[in-house]
Design a protein around this nucleic acid. Structure first.
Lengths: 314, 314
DNA sequence: TTGTACGCGTTATCAT
DNA sequence: ATGATAACGCGTACAA
């Protein structure tokens, strides 16, 4: 075994006795070559263990990137943790894959600056986040999912606030007057919280945002309904209610948001606000793939799905 | 707005009135520069909208890749579909992220050949698959998860066959004699099937591999137990049994494999063979990150988790 | 502390 | 059909 310098086009060229250009053509422009010669070259390459032009060099020279980058809110592994994110990413991945591109999951700000990609997708990032700044600095085609809204960049999202109002109004219509709100601090969560409050305040209903739901449910004038900013939170609330000895929906109504698959399987099945996560991902994927810098904004519809976790207050 | 040539180090150098090297140093070797000058350079860069050295060029020149590649069985979007894969990938992602690397999801054979990565992870690929060949050709550090076993490459997996035997023996011990096997065609699925058969044949029990479980359950001497190659299949079987009017575990016992989170939530909770998916991912991640070409093989333990989907036959 | 010079491995152009 | 040559944008000895 020779410790052998790394193999390059030139190595093969020398071995076969042709020029570097010809070897390059053997890989990239088969029509520029006598088929027989091409065969000889490829055979020699295989024999020497050369697997083709170096990807890094090829990218520098050609300007092609053949990959799109993905930035998520809560770190990279979040992609595989959160069912809602999973559905979105599935939509993106399908489209990207069909286009023959790779998907680069970017870990942090430095990763953004260093990513060899043709476009970047920002998923639910807080406005002003370092990653957003970095992405903007890259001057690449950007596609924003959900947040933040960026002038002159493609966008796909939903009307979170309206969805939240739908949920709240459903419970109000059932006769609920005392609510617990369960929302996080992300941009979309804030929108949803705002929607809940709008509807609730308009109806003059009472609401709180408990630090500890279990505690709130133990209170004397406990809430009769929970408005959750996501199905995951709603599912957790379901558990909390069960632990507290409350029967859903008889003692407590719960509404989620997203309509992840698990929402339909839970017992009782979750009433929730559906958003077309898969479709959202597909659209994001198309936006990422299309060379068109054309500014486009897509806002997808939301829809209340009434299942079994909501009822009139006892 | 000038249509401006793409910005390079030289652009900034010219603007500030220093050499290209100095600008490069401002980014890569701060100690080689007067802090004041560095500030001026960075300011000018920011002003001009230059976001730093071109990632592709930097990679070619430096030889650093700062990303690891991931190859999955069933296409890219599979990563976000399958809960078992999700858990594994979560483990990988965490480790990769901690190392400051990006994660490249590679779509196909061409993607493998073209991936700008420092190492590749093959997850449960069939032996001889084009992607495996391509990965081998790249001559990069390879880490195999589950399958296939490759000489001279890092490996992490479990003893699928033993896990399957555990499941089968559990049911045999309960007194079952007629079984339905539900396995796929992937390499790991085949191993598990083999494990089921070994135990069953050794006990002289009867088994079938029905194309249609519903049909099999309708038969006169229907199986009293189902051995599934994954929790997903087991969960589907649960549904099928319910639709057939069978009560699990009274009328039918079902065992899964993997112990995904959903296995504990189902009704009834699933008896299954647990494998440490998260840990498997973390180890794969470490193997991918470590520069060490040292060959390593890790086989993680499996364990039977008895919950509520199995009982003595009626 | 700064600048000069030389690749890194490839692809595109243009000549032969 | 094949080959010489010039970029691509950058990193880093080494000299100044």
């Amino acid at each position: 075994m020779t410790p052998s310098r790394p193999l390059t086009l030139q190595t093969i060229a020398d071995a076969v006795g042709v020029s570097r250009t010809t070897v390059s053509n053997a890989y990239n422009r088969p029509d520029q070559l006598a088929p027989a010669l091409r065969e000889r070259i490829l055979a020699a390459a295989h024999e020497l263990g050369y697997s083709g032009p170096d990807p890094a060099a090829r990218r520098l020279r050609s300007g092609r990137r053949d990959a799109v980058g993905l930035l998520l809110t809560e770190g990279l592994s979040h992609a595989f943790t959160d069912p809602a994110a999973g559905l979105l990413l599935q939509g993106i991945a399908r489209t990207i894959e069909d286009a023959g591109l790779a998907l680069l999951l970017v870990p942090d700000r430095d990763g953004v600056l260093d990513a060899v990609v043709q476009s970047l997708c920002l998923c639910a990032l807080p406005e002003g986040h370092p990653n957003v700044e970095a992405a903007l600095a890259r001057r690449l085609p950007l596609v924003v999912v959900d947040e933040p809204r960026l002038a002159d960049h493609a966008y796909v999202g939903i009307d979170d606030r309206r969805g939240a109002r739908l949920a709240a109004e459903h419970l109000l219509a059932l006769g609920h007057r005392r609510f617990a709100l369960l929302c996080g601090e992300s941009a979309t969560q804030r929108e949803r919280r705002a929607g809940f409050r709008e509807a609730l305040d308009a109806a003059g209903a009472r609401w709180e945002e408990p630090d500890d739901l279990a505690e709130a449910l133990a209170a004397d004038d406990r809430p009769t309904a929970v408005l959750a900013g996501s199905d995951q939170r709603a599912l957790a609330a379901l558990e909390t209610a069960r632990d507290a000895g409350l029967v859903v929906p008889h003692d407590l109504s719960i509404v989620g948001f997203d309509d992840i698959p698990g929402a339909a399987w839970s017992v009782p099945a979750l009433t929730t606000v559906r958003q077309p996560l898969l479709r959202k991902g597909e659209i994001a994927g198309q936006l990422l793939t299309s060379a068109a810098t054309a500014r486009r904004e897509v806002v997808l519809p939301v829809e209340l799905v009434v299942r079994c976790s909501t009822a009139r207050p006892a």
